[in-house]
Computed example of a mutant assay.
Amino acid sequence: MTYIAGDGQIMAARIAGSVAGVALSLIYMLPKGRQEAATRLATGLVAGLVFGPATGLFGAEKLDLLATLSAPEIVLSGSAAVSLTAWWALGALKRVAERWGR
């Protein structure tokens, strides 16, 4: 198994992007309680940390921005996008399930 050592700047971008995505998500959909907030916060952070770099690279390739953006900027934007999407999607699915479950 290959060990991949993360650059400190890249890891900081992953964390900052994940936190920024969760923070932006608060604007769109507030959690109803502590448990929902904790679940969505953890999901957004983990999703941003894990899938952020790949998502950022995919987006930069599709928008033809690879030559323009640095690696930390690509990772930051990808982590924020994934974190925002995960938070929103989990909240939306929970509310839809609550409505259909009645």
Rank of each mutant, 00 (worst) to 15 (best):
A47W: 00
L76V: 03
L66P: 05
L66R: 15
L76G: 03
E73Q: 14
L65Q: 12
K62F: 09
L66N: 13
P53Q: 06
L66M: 13
E73I: 15
D64M: 11
S77Y: 08
E73K: 13
L63C: 06
L66I: 14
L49F: 11
V75H: 06
G52S: 07
T68C: 04
F58S: 06
A60R: 00
E61G: 13
P72S: 09
L57D: 05
G56H: 12
I74D: 00
S77N: 13
G52D: 00
E61I: 15
F58I: 08
A67N: 11
I74C: 02
P53L: 08
K62Q: 10
G78L: 01
T68I: 13
T55G: 01
A71E: 11
S70K: 11
P72W: 11
D64K: 04
F58N: 05
T68N: 07
S70Q: 07
V50M: 04
T55W: 02
G59F: 12
G78F: 07
L63T: 15
E61M: 14
D64E: 10
A54Q: 09
T68G: 03
S70F: 09
I74R: 06
G59A: 14
A67G: 13
S79E: 02
L63V: 10
G48C: 08
P53M: 05
S70Y: 05
A60N: 01
L65S: 10
E61Y: 11
F51P: 05
L57W: 09
E61Q: 13
K62T: 10
V46H: 02
G56C: 14
S70V: 10
A54V: 07
T68W: 07
A67R: 11
V75Q: 01
